[in-house]
């Protein structure tokens, strides 16, 4: 539930909110799945499952740095999160 509202939010949107709040909001602030998992206390497999949905929805983007996959939230992803609290 979101702040007692009548509709449940999906796991991936909830995960997106946490990624936003830990500051993954620009390419230079991108994190690996392991780092995300550690910061949000979400299991790596669950984190990856959510991340794939967020990538498909274009709320998250992938970048590869020195062969390592890292992720950050797009402008649309930020707006999605902020819509919950505005």
């Amino acid at each position: 539930m979101h702040r007692g509202r009548p509709m449940p939010i999906s796991d991936e949107v909830y995960f997106l909110c946490m990624l936003h709040n830990i500051g993954m909001t620009a390419p230079e602030k991108s994190l690996t799945i392991e780092e995300m998992s550690r910061w949000t206390a979400v299991e790596p497999s669950k984190a990856e499952e959510n991340l794939n949905k967020l990538l498909k929805a274009k709320y998250v983007e992938e970048r590869i740095i020195s062969g390592i996959k890292k992720y950050f939230i797009t402008a649309d992803g930020i707006r999605k999160v902020l819509s919950m609290y505005s």
Binding site: C17, H20, N21, I22, G23, M24, W39, T40
Partner: peptide, 12 residues
């Protein structure tokens, strides 16, 4: 710029 973060919205 927000130089710190926390998964909890209110903390953020």
């Amino acid at each position: 710029s927000i130089e710190l973060g926390h998964p909890n919205f209110i903390a953020w």
